[in-house]
Design a protein around this nucleic acid. Structure first.
Lengths: 344, 344
DNA sequence: ATTAGCACTCTTGTCTTCCGAGTGCTAATG
DNA sequence: CATTAGCACTCGGAAGACAAGAGTGCTAAT
């Protein structure tokens, strides 16, 4: 489909105005606020054309028009202007982050809070994914009889812990020894590549406590394949009430339901970790659950290796330009912080 | 003040009906549904009296009446009947909990989810408070140059970690040694009693790395005095939309704001940890922020030592009877699980 | 191709009316 | 004296009527 310059300008004006006001916009508004040199009648004609092309929707005859999903998609892909949002807060992200010295979970949470504050949409984030990082150290800590806490520390300075059962006759010094051997052997390797069976000189441990050995190995394998829902961070849920599209309780409820399904968010963010910045409008082709919502995400990296993602979720009538700008800047800052830690 | 049997019965009926329906209840309703052997006129007279005593409120002349806060308080303290709620789910709590083998944070989260499911109010919980527990082990794990992860494990099988800065010249074996010495010296002692200065034979570490030594000691002290906001667990926030009192966005927003202020929730739950079961109606005397909300909480224990609390937050028009029942049963189950771990 | 003008449509807010639920009071009753 | 039947009164909410306003589409003029 082909569009004239003027059509695009009008569409742009309508989308911008609607994003700002949430009120269907009419031809006179456009003429007055955005293009005073052409008449409302002309704009009316163009709008009529745009409606026939499926870009505008009339809620009812005597109202203005609102952008269709297609229009939003087109806006994001082609029309939208770069919004340079250099607020003080964004400029100082890195400094703030650095103060948190290595508590990566906290850093990501802060990033989400920052995104939330600057966009006023609900921020979502995926903490650094262990499977995408390399091991720093494993420590086995006895907690109770037959219970051991496995703590994994990675190069993204993330920490993950889990209780596992062990045979009662495994003593503390054995745990310490095993911690030491595993850490030494696999330190610096990708978590995904860790296989305790590759350990040399531990055949006696393996033989004496096969179940124990198996549990630890299983746990490591588990971390590699699935990131659990606790990896998803939310910030600023209540923001949603600032938008008129959620004034009805049923809509608000649907939104909260969505946020409850961490698996979905985790999937979206994982995808984004791979793909970099992505904009999903009203669910796009892949997410039926997200109808009437938009999700914008971007990844953050250690060096050139993406390890997590941040984003926002909100109404389709979203200020995409601003959101993308804030996200990419925050993502860059986050990447810098992560990377500097690893290389320090 | 003195009340006749009948007055109490009528008050009880009004409160029960209003809790169920959220609609101001009139004299005829009471007569029909609850006391068919006296006439609505009689009830009308009694209701008028109850209103003058400050127990009932008329939203407007031609509506029924709703209970006042005083009435709710009285209801909870004197009138309310024991509600025996022995649903399958509650009966099987302990089994479910035991499956989680020692992941206390997860156990508490599950308890909250269970409370939420069974009451349909938003559940809040305080994870086992470290200052109320005794130390099992401390482990110092190097994460990056100049950064060390301190992991504390306690007898409630809770784990707390924090990054701290260390001088670059502290090496791994020193950390291991220190972990070992601290754990050995203080294992079994209340966290509150730990003071690294009491350690013998570490004067060389202390002299060589005073800043490092100080950070660790500070961290332990910090854990003792303040429990951070991450200790508060929420479950089932969206439930609030099931209640008509939050149909207006502004009310819902206030609720979410409340849940965001973790310090407040933490304070309430900490208080409850000390006091056992407590019911705060519309903020009571102490919490002005909680106006128009009710919070019911109870503590859970290790043996006879309370270490945390669980509760719900919701509208003043709350089914106190059911809530208290569910909370106390869950609290008991939780206590059993915690206790059995410690003593095993 | 653009635009002025106008009739038409449809929502929104306001006003009125009406109904019903509920009350308070009075007088009758056991 | 407590209880109750009866009735007038009050008020909120729903339904309908109406005007105002915003916006459109179409036609005819430029």
């Amino acid at each position: 489909m082909n569009f004239s310059e003027r059509q695009l300008a009008i569409l742009n004006a309508i989308i911008c105005d609607y994003i700002e006001t949430a009120v269907p916009v009419g031809s006179r508004t456009i003429a007055r606020k955005y293009m005073p040199d052409i008449s409302s009648a002309t704009i009316r004609n163009e709008m009529s054309d745009l409606e026939h092309m499926g870009l505008l929707i009339q809620p009812h005859t005597s109202a203005g028009r609102i952008p269709s999903q297609t229009a939003y998609r087109m806006y994001v892909n082609k029309i939208m202007e770069e919004h340079d949002f250099d607020d003080y807060k964004i400029n100082h992200i890195e400094d703030d982050f650095v103060k948190l010295k290595g508590e990566m979970l906290q850093v990501v949470r802060n990033a989400a809070a920052l995104i939330n504050m600057n966009t006023n949409y609900t921020a979502i984030a995926l903490t650094p994914q262990l499977r995408r990082t390399t091991l720093k150290r494993i420590q086995l800590i006895p907690v109770a009889k037959g219970l051991v806490l496995v703590v994994m520390v990675t190069d993204a300075a993330r920490v993950k812990q889990k209780m596992i059962n062990v045979p009662v006759n495994v003593n503390e010094s054995l745990l310490d020894e095993l911690s030491f051997v595993i850490s030494k052997r696999f330190s610096g390797q990708a978590i995904a590549d860790i296989d305790l069976n590759l350990l040399d000189g531990i055949s006696d441990i393996k033989n004496e406590h096969p179940a124990f050995f198996e549990s630890i190995n299983n746990y490591i394998a588990e971390v590699v394949v699935k990131s659990d829902s606790s990896d998803v961070v939310l910030e600023g849920v209540k923001c949603i009430f600032d938008y008129p599209e959620y004034r009805e309780v049923s809509h608000a409820k649907r939104f909260l339901n969505l946020l409850d399904s961490k698996e979905l968010l985790q999937k979206i963010l994982s995808d984004s970790t791979r793909k970099g910045t992505s904009v999903i409008i009203s669910g796009g082709d892949s997410y039926r659950e997200l109808e009437d919502f938009s999700v914008v995400t971007t990844s953050y990296k250690v060096g050139s290796r993406p390890i997590g993602a941040i984003g926002v979720i909100g109404p389709v009538r979203m200020d995409y330009s601003k959101v993308i700008n804030v996200l990419e800047k925050t993502g860059k800052a986050l990447s810098n912080v992560m990377t500097s830690y690893i290389n320090e």
